[in-house]
Design a protein around this nucleic acid. Sequence first.
DNA 1: AGGCTCATGTAACCGGTTACATGATTAT
DNA 2: ATAATCATGTAACCGGTTACATGAGCCT
Lengths: 182, 182
Amino acid sequence: MSLGFGILGFLNYTPMSGYDLVKAFESSLAFFWHAQNSHIYLELKKLEKNGFICGETVIQSERPNKTVFTITDAGRKAFLDWLAEGEGESAIQFKSVFLMKVFFAGNMPPAQSAELLRQFQTDCEAYLERMQSVPASIETYGSDKDDYQTIYWQFTADFGFCFIKACIEWAKRCIEKLEDME
Amino acid sequence: MSLGFGILGFLNYTPMSGYDLVKAFESSLAFFWHAQNSHIYLELKKLEKNGFICGETVIQSERPNKTVFTITDAGRKAFLDWLAEGEGESAIQFKSVFLMKVFFAGNMPPAQSAELLRQFQTDCEAYLERMQSVPASIETYGSDKDDYQTIYWQFTADFGFCFIKACIEWAKRCIEKLEDME
DNA sequence: AGGCTCATGTAACCGGTTACATGATTAT
DNA sequence: ATAATCATGTAACCGGTTACATGAGCCT
């Protein structure tokens, strides 16, 4: 139901179609919540069935018709309740296949595991590069809105930067140690 | 199947029972891969069916009997193949309900969202405290083993430390900004 | 005619969680 | 007795992914 709350969060800003939501997720939450379009459409049906959102068909002449969803009072309440409740320890935990691989990387020769880490480093650097545009786009998108909303978007963007930078530094240290060994 | 590879990784060190594996996951991979015991037993059946592991009943007099699993050649090959293949971009991505909440926290008054972050900070600090014993336990557990294996365990532990510390610093900065606003 | 964006789904599957259930043996 | 550790599962469910499918309208 986590995705459902994400959708409610966006619809709480403004009514949107499924397609709009796909784009919204892609361009903002993607770093810590990647959503498939199929999943979003599925979740929209669930939310409507639960009375949290309400869809209305919009007939368009220049484009295919679409269904625009609006959050209901019940939906807004559910969303705010979810926001208010704490996450507990689960906020810290995350799953990473990559780190599991590193954990067992002693089963590969150092040259090969160094390659794994080098690949990770370059992937992180590429990601960091792409993230450079984020603060600007938050500012432009947020300018016509409540300023208060945007500081939280900046918080999450800031988290992303710190995380990626820490990953890069960590990878460098690991690679260095492996190279010293050879 | 990720859990399956984790199990193969452990069994590649030494044969173990399901119960042993539950403990092994808890005391080492837990930070980035929490495994339910039910899931482990389920996965063991699958792995045996695929011919990757082989179970043998051990009759014990002082404790309940158990089934000890040994990795097969096919299992070892599958494990090493998995290790060797790169992770790609997926290595970076992670899902976080907590960050999604922060993203939408503008829908709460600053006092309430600051509380969310404060809770996160204290949870992180408690976690960091508990992690202090990890390097020592790696050293003692690894001392009778191949030294080469243990450096990778240290790598993952190091990652954990950096990550948690970065989280704490980030939370502090966010809270400060929120307090400045009031 | 062919490719792009807009727009919406379905079906099969899988990885994992939750909750529950059982029972042996050891230690206090 | 009873709590703790050792030991192993089952059933229902859920959140999410993969792969596939369709079609309108726009631009070139």
